[in-house]
Design a binder for these strands. Sequence first.
DNA 1: CTGAAAGCGCTAACAC
DNA 2: GTGTTAGCGCTTTCAG
Lengths: 334, 334
Amino acid sequence: MNRHRVRLIDVAEAAGVSRATASRVLSGSPRHVDPVLAERVWTVARRIGYRPHLSARALRTGQTGTIGIVVPTLANPYFVALAEAFASEARDLGADLLIADSRNDIESEMTHLRRLADGRVDAIAIVPVSYEDSGAALAEALDAVPIVQVDRRTRDGSTAAIVLDNVAGIRLLIDHLHSVGRERIAYVGAETASSSGAERLAAFGDLAGTGSPTTVVSEFSTSAGREAARHLLDSAADIDAIICGADVLAVGLHSTLQRSGVSLPGDIALVSFDDSELLELTDPPITSLSPPVGEIARRTTELLMGEGDDWREPSVERLEPGIVTRESTRQIDP
Amino acid sequence: MNRHRVRLIDVAEAAGVSRATASRVLSGSPRHVDPVLAERVWTVARRIGYRPHLSARALRTGQTGTIGIVVPTLANPYFVALAEAFASEARDLGADLLIADSRNDIESEMTHLRRLADGRVDAIAIVPVSYEDSGAALAEALDAVPIVQVDRRTRDGSTAAIVLDNVAGIRLLIDHLHSVGRERIAYVGAETASSSGAERLAAFGDLAGTGSPTTVVSEFSTSAGREAARHLLDSAADIDAIICGADVLAVGLHSTLQRSGVSLPGDIALVSFDDSELLELTDPPITSLSPPVGEIARRTTELLMGEGDDWREPSVERLEPGIVTRESTRQIDP
DNA sequence: CTGAAAGCGCTAACAC
DNA sequence: GTGTTAGCGCTTTCAG
């Protein structure tokens, strides 16, 4: 049953042509081959079920037809959305997407990066785990394969980075909150190990009034969100709105506020950042920035697959988010 | 900067040994080589930054050191959890995990399956999209690489399948609901395109009293859950408990019930199937079966990587779930 | 437009 | 215990 792989030479022989011709038809440049032969080769190939051996092809061409994406965790729906945007992009390019999950772990991230760079993929998009510590692994993988940083970046900007414009994002959220009559805004973010977290926090510090409270929890997770909510409740801060640095935080926070009898949006208006499906499930649904994941993926692959070495330019390209208003920021009649 | 790859021969030359010896040290059987030489090779390899070319190695050995997993969608946290369990399993085996997302699409599933089978991975674990229609693609990929079906299966059981024991699961949930005083139980599941969906529905039909209402929506998604809730509300069925066939359904359903003023667990007790993080976020948190994802992944890789052809046996192995009780099924004092 | 032949980087017989 | 050599399956010069 599991005889042996059908190889190119099997097709060639059955079609009465050389391997070279068969190869040209099946992969390379079918333009430069007699249409009659080409047709014959195709027919035979289909009949005997030929499938090219990808490792062999990769070895020969130096191209794998695969793009890799490394995300901090798939438990965060935002990174899943990002991965799917890249999958769609890859499909358009006739390539595959290989998804790797670092589990928020530098070690694991380095391992993935190394293995991907070992001839497994043609290019890598990575959401680095840590601003401070992800740089080393990146720098190492860099001379094997093009890499672009996505959504977050490392301190030593050794490659191009395509990120959300966090300052614009915070501004958009604050403006929106003001427009619905909120003035005493708090910010809840996670530990600033990631550049995006740090940028959002800093932007909030700059744009919100001085003395606006910020709460920094240890990780981007729903339980951290609940912890933040308890902290805010305990501190009895005088606020009427909260900006969350990530959906998972917002949902956890929402759940704890809700159970503590805080009325949303009556007492507190809530906004978040990633616009994942989670935000539509809460009661009330939560207003959010809508990050341009499609555009991020498109621009990143453009850089990655482009002819030049543009990805080597340690630039930071910031893409503009939109906003999706939901009930959590409904205007309250005085 | 991007000179050229450091190859095995570069290491060999720098260490003054043959490629064979270098290869033996760096990969094969370091046992059969002089420790002194071995040490030298390692040192040199590290110094000049040698990394084996994975495609070349795969071509030569016929082994990729990679396991592939194909899931219907990563938007469902249950499949993410499953994928992470496999990642952990792969890590233990010194292998990589390649995650592919079918987006609930037969076409896309087939494409992934094909490409994975084209020498990209050593084995495939797949959660088939459709009981009826996923079989063909499976059968095709089958003679290139070992495949085991996970969590769901296809009609023509052409490979082994490791699934949750859905009958035991439904029984566990019903028993639990009875134990907290609920007798009029409804079931909400998605279209039976998947074997697990169908099994759960059938088991409910068998085990719940006759006339127990069932609602079947078109897909496993939160919006489908909301739709189911509206349906139940409209039908004004006389029930005091609901079993949901998937967490995403439960969460959507919960959200709509909640907004319609139904009290949980007062009016209705709610239970679900996948025990994902989502269920802890709702108010009240939702009781759920806890599927043995770790065990599923372990058993599957065992079958896949084992010496024999055990995975070819079209058997169905059913693993026992546990249950995690939460507030949504709290006993109500009469 | 087609074929012969070289070789991508690596490992595994097979000799020594 | 180590080196020599033959290929894994494919694409791509280079001749014709």
